[in-house]
């Protein structure tokens, strides 16, 4: 499913891209000093959605399983962290528990899903996602039903509270770094190579003795865990969790963030996510309700103008 040729995958980190990464890191860390508060807030939202999209890229890009229900794990993480915070646990431990809850749910759902593939995997994950959303709607005692969990207290790190725009940004940026590092280390490891091998030629990998289903399940659980971690950040950022956070729209936007970015590259998924959030929350808010039209035009343009996503642009220009 990937648009990126084998060999141009995750693992190679050249000196140039290392320098680029450092420059981006510095730009991100300094952001609250040169951005207006609302721009910082938007960037915070982009980071959360970017990590979420990157976790989905682990499935779509690395192993070739396009999920249309990935928001379920974002949501399970967000509800877990939100519920814990409402019951007094606001420390980063809540993020780990959020990731664990999503991993557990991913283990169950993945066990069912990885037997199918392609469009069937797509629709099966959609169905599981819809069921998850319905549970969020119906299990009012825990999830607050359609009004969701609100009044979530700010996240804390030791004596510090992530309550204002900038401290919240740093909290999320820290989480983003941890989550991305985790995804990166997996994709750069021999394990990541095996996953890519399964994506490109399942039969051959089976012949080599790799039990592809087990690897796919592993990728599914890992992607769910990181999505859950992102969900924990989402709860801290929005201070609110509602069923729409694990709904179809969220899943679809993340999937298309991966495609627009160029699947198979974690950073590209983040860029795609940033683009979509930018269109929806910055441009969309000021065009009198034509936000969906903007998104539609963006999708159409992306397909024709960026056949390999944002990641493919530099190569094309050469």
């Amino acid at each position: 499913m990937s648009a990126v040729p084998a060999g141009l995958g995750y693992a190679r980190v050249s000196l140039r891209s290392g320098a680029l990464a450092a420059a981006i890191a510095v730009t991100l860390v300094a952001a609250p000093f040169y951005l207006a508060p609302y721009a910082t807030t938007t960037l915070t939202r982009m980071l959360v959605f970017g990590l979420f999209a990157a976790s989905l890229d682990l499935l779509v890009g690395l192993i070739g399983l396009p999920s249309l229900g990935h928001a379920a794990y974002l949501g399970i993480g967000a509800y877990t962290a939100g519920w814990l915070a409402l019951h007094g646990l606001t420390s980063p431990l809540a993020l780990l528990l959020a990731a664990s809850a999503s991993a557990l749910a991913g283990l169950g759902a993945g066990w069912i899903s990885v037997r199918s593939s392609g469009i069937f995997f797509l629709i099966l994950t959609l169905a599981i996602g819809e069921i998850a959303e319905q549970i969020a709607q119906s299990w009012t005692a825990v999830t607050g039903g359609s009004n969701g969990l609100y009044g979530i207290p700010a996240a804390t790190v030791g004596p510090l509270t992530a309550s204002d725009v900038a401290s919240l940004y740093y909290y999320v940026l820290g989480g983003f770094g941890v989550g991305m590092a985790m995804l990166w280390s997996v994709s750069a490891s021999p394990l990541g190579a095996a996953l890519r091998g399964i994506r490109d030629n399942k039969t051959r990998m089976r012949a080599l003795g790799y039990e592809s289903t087990r690897y796919e399940l592993f990728a599914f659980v890992l992607a769910a865990a990181v999505a859950g971690f992102a969900g924990g950040l989402l709860a801290a950022q929005q201070r609110l969790v509602t069923p729409s956070d694990l709904g179809f729209t969220t899943s679809a936007l993340a999937l298309f963030a991966v495609v627009i970015g160029g699947s198979g590259r974690l950073w590209a998924a983040c860029l795609g996510a940033a683009l979509i959030i930018g269109v929806r929350d910055v441009a969309g808010l000021t065009v009198n309700g034509h936000g969906p039209l903007l998104l539609g035009l963006l999708f159409i343009a992306a397909v024709y103008l960026m056949p390999h996503g944002i990641a493919g642009l530099p190569r094309r220009r050469k």
Partner: peptide
Amino acid sequence: MLGGAGVAG
């Protein structure tokens, strides 16, 4: 991350 939260105030 922690230092950053301090700046933020």
